[in-house]
Design a protein around this nucleic acid. Structure first.
Length: 330
DNA sequence: TAGGCCATCTGGTCCT
DNA sequence: AGGACCAGATGGCCTA
């Protein structure tokens, strides 16, 4: 899955010509070469041809370079250099792993979104935007206790999304931009790739793959206890008979831990008795279904208005994160 | 070809 | 000291 990147040609020329490279950096160059042997992304490989002498004096005052403040750097002894190099290699590996974990979590999030597609992956930012809208839309459904009117639901989901993503969502939910009404279809499994022929849908966005995703009603299954269970019990979804999507590989990151306090049992599985701290926000919601598929949701959920400018342009820099935090952590 | 998206490296900061 | 997290920088890939 990891892409491999070719080593950029210009890099070595660029770096080796830079007079500001102090000896610490030159030592890093050596380290990078070593790192690049392990990492697929070998951008720094081969940079150090001109920085072999690690003991050379660090400050070559050539007049052009601004004087550095602060304490003079310690000379890089060979031992120090070795330690530094090893540390950097390890740090790079950790950082790669960390980012892979982050991406895995994002993939998990994509899969529980109402328009999961292996062929057309949502970008990271669009995934987060859609997730936010989805939470918002579902909270509205919980509040009203009614199946949402199709157009409104899609509009909620699409707020602030880019046009291509909006098209994708509309396509997934079988709602074209012109005909935004809920059309009855026989119920199919949610989030099932390639299970439904594309001609079933009344809207296809140009350039989109055949929408294999399901219809509006199926996505509302996310509200029903079995699917709710599937979110917390990885073994559930992977054996769902209607779903042709490959089984879910790993346990989900606790998907509903709104406040971030998700308890795990000793074996690592979610502790449903303790975990759902969002019950504090949804005090009368019965979560029995998380265990037994027979729960009911009472619709006395407090309403959370999201006083956020949801225009596409407003997303990147604004209050989305802090305000959501404030809402969910109050 | 420009722009969007992405993976990776890197140095800084904070925490244990 | 070392790990986690973060943001900036960089360059590759892809598409309109």
């Amino acid at each position: 899955m990891t892409k491999t990147y070719a080593k950029p040609k210009e890099m070595s020329e660029l770096v080796s010509s830079q007079s500001w490279m102090d000896e610490a950096l030159s030592s890093q160059d050596e380290m990078k070469e070593e790192d690049s042997k392990q990492a697929p992304y070998g951008m720094m490989a081969g940079l150090n041809e001109e920085h072999d002498s690690i003991e050379e004096e660090e400050e070559e005052e050539d007049g052009e370079k601004p004087k550095r403040r602060g304490p003079k750097k310690k000379k890089m002894t060979k031992a120090r250099l070795e330690r530094f190099r090893a540390r950097r290699v390890k740090a790079n590996a950790r950082e790669r792993t960390r980012m892979h974990g982050l991406n895995d979590a994002l993939d998990n999030l994509r899969r529980v979104m109402p328009c999961y597609s292996k062929t057309q992956k949502l970008s990271k930012i669009e995934t987060l935007r859609l997730a936010r809208n989805y939470i918002w839309a579902l909270s509205e459904v919980l509040e009203t206790g009614q199946t949402p009117e199709g157009k409104g639901f899609v509009e909620m989901l699409c707020k602030g999304l880019s046009q291509p993503t909006s098209n994708l969502v509309a396509g997934c939910l079988q709602l074209g931009p012109q005909s935004l009404f809920l059309e009855k279809h026989e119920e199919k499994s949610p989030v099932c790739d390639s299970a439904i022929p594309s001609h079933t849908f009344n809207y296809q966005s140009p350039g989109l793959p055949s929408p294999p995703y399901g219809n509006m009603e199926t996505h509302l299954l996310h509200l029903k206890p079995p699917t709710f269970k599937s979110l917390v019990d990885p073994s559930f979804g992977s054996h769902h008979p209607d779903c042709t999507t490959p089984p879910y590989e790993g346990p989900l990151t606790p998907p509903l831990s709104i406040s971030g306090n998700f308890s795990l049992k000793q074996d690592g599985s979610p502790d449903l008795d303790k975990s759902y701290t969002f019950m504090a926000h949804y005090p009368s919601m019965s979560l029995a279904g998380a265990h037994g598929h027979t729960s009911h949701f009472q619709s006395t959920v407090p309403r959370y208005e999201l006083p956020i400018d949801m225009s596409y342009e407003s997303y990147p820099h604004h209050v989305v994160g802090p305000q959501l935090n404030a809402i969910f952590n109050e």
